[in-house]
Write a protein that binds this DNA or RNA. Structure first.
Lengths: 136, 136
DNA sequence: ATAATTGCAAATGTTTTGCATATCG
DNA sequence: CGATATGCAAAACATTTGCAATTAT
């Protein structure tokens, strides 16, 4: 699988030391990072990297399709790798945790719904809010 | 159906002139209003009503369950009446329009998906992004 | 050398808040 | 009167941007 860096080069981005560092942190990170999250981690390795750079990098990476921007309804955007298999999010209301899941049937149904309305589905955004079932 | 004002009284809110005015504008409005939208309309009737009051009113109304807060991913929150029949939103990518639709099958499927993950579905948020089909 | 990237501080845009004043019950 | 609600200006935030300085190619 192509590395983030390779994909940057393909898009004609120059690869400075700081950008490399951000890429490294991104590659090692799990889950859904906000700009502040990422900045915190990156600053731990090089305290000269500014928040503005982190924002600019995230924006660029979203534009070249390396990251996907997530919006969970609080007012901070989060990012995740774009090339993961498509999935949606279930938000655990008891602890704020995020469970990822795949549901091809859902996508199929949504496409059909859009079709009924006279539209072609280009994408969707689905977040489930749920509480864990006790017995298990 | 209970009026907004009735529901406010039930929650022990006092009903000043300005709040009544905001309620009136809200009742007559259609669709998904932002705080700025609402303020614009309200100010047309009484230019002494501040944006802060509009925000405070929206927050209160959401807390007492009269309004539902919507987040379409741009960074301004919108509100709609909470007691409308449940529905989701399809966003027309060509003109930014919002089409509301009902899809009980979707809700049913989502509940089942949550169940498979060991959760009980409490709510969800679904936005479809789509383009109109030309021929029709 | 030329173009891309960055830090900093200032600017944005939305929403919230402290406090004194006005209004409600 | 005591409790709420409001206006105003300032504060909070997340995010973006202008510009001069640094780094990449």
């Amino acid at each position: 699988m192509k590395s983030l860096e390779q994909r940057c080069v393909e898009h004609g981005l120059s690869m400075g030391r700081k950008r490399r560092l951000i890429i490294r942190v991104l590659s090692e990170a799990e889950g859904h990072l906000s700009a502040a999250d990422l900045h915190r981690r990156v600053v731990a390795l090089d305290r000269s990297i500014s928040l503005a750079t982190v924002y600019r990098t995230l924006t660029i990476f979203e534009e070249i399709g390396v990251l996907k921007r997530l919006d969970f309804g609080d007012r901070t955007m989060r990012y995740e790798e774009a090339d993961k298999t498509p999935h949606d999010h279930l938000l655990d209301m008891t602890d704020g945790g995020v469970v990822e899941f795949q549901a091809p049937e859902v996508a199929a149904l949504l496409a059909e719904v859009a079709d009924r309305l006279g539209y072609r589905l280009k994408g969707y955004r689905l977040d489930l809010y749920a509480t864990p079932v006790a017995d298990r």
